[in-house]
Amino acid sequence: MLTAILIMALGAVVLGAALGYASIKFKVEGDPLVDKIDAILPQTQCGQCGYPGCKPYAEAISKGEADINLCPPGGMEGVQRLADLLGREVKPLEAEEKPKQVAIIDEQTCIGCTLCIQACPVDAIVGAAKQMHTIVESLCTGCELCVPPCPVECIRMEPVAETIDNWKWKYPVIELKKVA
C-alpha cells in the first residue's frame, strides 16, 4: 500500500518536474495564433475593421472579441480562410467588397500640408512641407486613410488598372448556347 502511494507520488513529482522544465525550455514567445491570423489579413492597415491596424484586429479575433467578417480589403476569401483557420462559421462580409485601389494625388492642387503623409500607415507618400506630395504607387495599399485629412481634396482613389504584368487567365467558362 505504502509502496504504491510512494510510486505514484514519485511519478507525479517526476512528471511535474518534466512538465515544468518543458514549459520553461520550450516557451513560445508571442501568440502563434495571432501571427497566423495576421498572415491571412491583407496588411492594408486601413482600420476599416475598427482596430488600429491588422495586428490589433488579429489580436482581437484571437481573443474572441472581434468577428471574422470585418475586413473589407480581405474580401470574402479572407473571411473563408479565417473561418477555416479558426473553425468558425463563415459569415457574409460586413461592408461591400471593393476592387484593389491606389491613391492618386492631384499634384496641381496639392498645397504641401503634409497631413496625408502623417496619415499614411506605410509611408507611401513622399513630400515635404509646402512642397508637392506624391504617392509611391507600388507601396500604396489602397487604405484610403489619406483621403479625409486632405484639406483641398486633391487625393482620389482609383482601382488598380489591369496590365499585361498583372493580367490573369480567366477561369474557363462553359458558354451556354440558347437552344430554340
Binding site: 491583407p42 492594408t44 490573369k168
Partner: peptide, 22 residues
C-alpha cells in the same frame, strides 16, 4: 491556376512589404 498562384504570391509579397513598413 498558374496565374492565380502568381497573383497570390504578388499579393503576399505586397502584404509583407506593407507589414514591415507599418
Amino acid at each position: 491556376a498558374k496565374s492565380e498562384i502568381w497573383a497570390r504570391e504578388r499579393e503576399k509579397k505586397a502584404a509583407d512589404t506593407a507589414k514591415t513598413r507599418f
